[in-house]
Computed example of a mutant assay.
Amino acid sequence: MFDIDDDFIQRERLKAKELKKSRWWQNLIQKTQCYYCQIPISREQVTMDHVVPISRGGRSTAGNLVPACKSCNEKKRSLTPVEWDEFLQRNKS
Rank of each mutant, 00 (worst) to 15 (best):
A16H: 01
I41E: 06
I54V: 15
G63R: 14
Q30K: 15
C34Q: 01
I9S: 13
L14C: 02
A16W: 01
E44Y: 13
Y36K: 04
V46E: 09
C72W: 02
R59Y: 03
W24R: 12
G63V: 04
W24P: 07
V66M: 03
R59E: 06
C34I: 00
I9C: 14
V66L: 00
E74L: 13
I4C: 08
E74G: 04
N64W: 02
Y35M: 09
D6Y: 05
K20Y: 06
S42K: 11
V51F: 09
W25Q: 04
T61D: 10
R13F: 01
V46Y: 09
R59Q: 11
R11N: 10
V66D: 01
A62I: 13
A68C: 14
S71I: 08
A62Y: 10
Q38I: 01
K20E: 12
Y36H: 02
W25M: 04
S71D: 04
D49Y: 09
R11L: 07
C37I: 03
T47F: 07
I54L: 10
P67Y: 12
A16I: 06
S42D: 08
P67N: 12
K70C: 06
P53L: 13
Q38H: 11
R23E: 12
Y36R: 02
N27T: 03
E44G: 14
E74A: 12
C69L: 07
Q38M: 07
P67T: 13
A16V: 02
K75E: 03
Y36W: 11
P67W: 07
V46Q: 05
V66H: 03
G58S: 09
S42L: 05
N73C: 10
Q33R: 13
E12K: 10
T32Q: 08
